[in-house]
Write a protein that binds this DNA or RNA. Structure first.
Lengths: 209, 209
DNA sequence: GCCCCCTTCTAATTTTGATTAGAATACCGA
DNA sequence: TCGGTATTCTAATCAAAATTAGAAGGGGGC
């Protein structure tokens, strides 16, 4: 919302205060990801090496912190998707573009990015007004992905009897829910999970002849 | 945990006190489903037509209420799955059994059952000890479903190159996450969503020749 | 009708955590 | 080094919600 470093185009080095602000946001994302919405401000402050009261110099309060973590969560996943798509060859098929987009979103949720993962855990408990704003943001992201589905259906690379918005939400669910069970220190990598999802989604679990 | 009416085998009519206890649990499931973990005890009490303090006659406190709603959430989804499987013809193929199980789980989450839906929303915020107990319960359910996957793989009805536990969690995620976005009053029915999921999971989004 | 105990209520009390106010400290430019 | 502003800390204060204590109500058995 306020100063999204990814979003501004100058690369003036951040001031000390801005650095602290970033550190607080990163801490908030990490703590929200781990503890969910009920994380205490004092935990977030401790993670950032501050006292709880000091957060108020940088943010109006808990709600403002939540709002910015949510906003960045969507923005970061979306940015990763855009970046992955931009790196594709222009010749890439519609279905490859879709596959790439899903893989990028999954990577954002599964890997080191705390913001998208935190987003998934706290979005539904955020106060109404914060949530309303964020819904608009998510809708823009969803619409963006929707175009990829439409293109792939139009070119015959996806079956035309699917309800694309429903399928998109189901796939998002599969990816977002990994926050609840995926253990990065286990024997499966994030890439393994992503492969399983993409294989299942596009080719199905039944053998193809 | 304590008195699970589905689990006891006599059908002695419930006493007045037991009826109230059930009413409180139903209210808790409904309110947790709607508001998430931060739902206030006073909201739950109001839903049950009581004052907040009165809950303590029936439960030790908030934590006990959470624990029982969680336990019932898993138990109810599992029971629906078992029941659906039991209704199948003995001739049913492995893949039909799997399809039936997934559809039953999806129905439990998407339809009128407040307990499974509440489970999905509050599980991750429950206090550690409550969560630990519930994890064991969920594991038993997961193992039960795992056998269906193994059977279907063994009989060649599912591809043998999938990581069944990962796929199972991804499918659970797709279903469980519907709590976050599915609107029963919208134009799509719960059955529509289930169909989309099952079609995608088994046949894939790409056209089959 | 009266008594007793089960159930619920009302009105504190406690706990927890967000927020604020003002004091202390750190940093930066002159 | 000094002065002043920026940043952080400490120590209240406030508010919300859980929990507890004891009073009140109500219904069935005598």
């Amino acid at each position: 919302m306020t100063s999204d470093p990814q979003a501004m185009d100058d690369d003036r080095p951040l001031t000390k205060s801005e650095l602290t602000r970033e550190r607080i946001l990163d801490s908030a994302a990490k703590v929200f990801r781990r503890q969910g919405y009920s994380a205490k401000l004092s935990d977030i402050a401790a993670e950032a090496g501050l006292q709880a009261g000091s957060l108020y110099y940088h943010f109006d309060g808990r709600e403002a912190l939540v709002a910015e973590v949510l906003h960045r969560g969507t923005a970061m996943a979306w940015a990763r998707v855009r970046k992955a798509l931009a790196a594709l060859d222009d010749e890439a098929s519609d279905i490859d573009r879709l596959r790439t987009a899903l893989a990028a979103h999954a990577a954002a949720v599964l890997e080191r990015d705390d913001y998208p993962a935190a987003h998934n855990r706290i979005f539904s408990m955020a106060p109404d007004e914060v949530r309303r704003t964020e819904i608009a943001h998510q809708k823009a992201y969803g619409d963006d992905l929707h175009r990829l589905f439409e293109a792939a259906i139009a070119s015959g690379e996806l079956r035309d009897d699917i309800d694309a918005p429903a399928v998109r939400m189901l796939l998002f669910g599969a990816m977002n829910w990994t926050s609840e069970w995926f253990d990065p220190s286990g024997h499966r990598s994030a890439a393994d999970i992503t492969d399983q999802l993409i294989t299942m989604a596009f080719d199905g679990l039944r053998p193809r002849d």
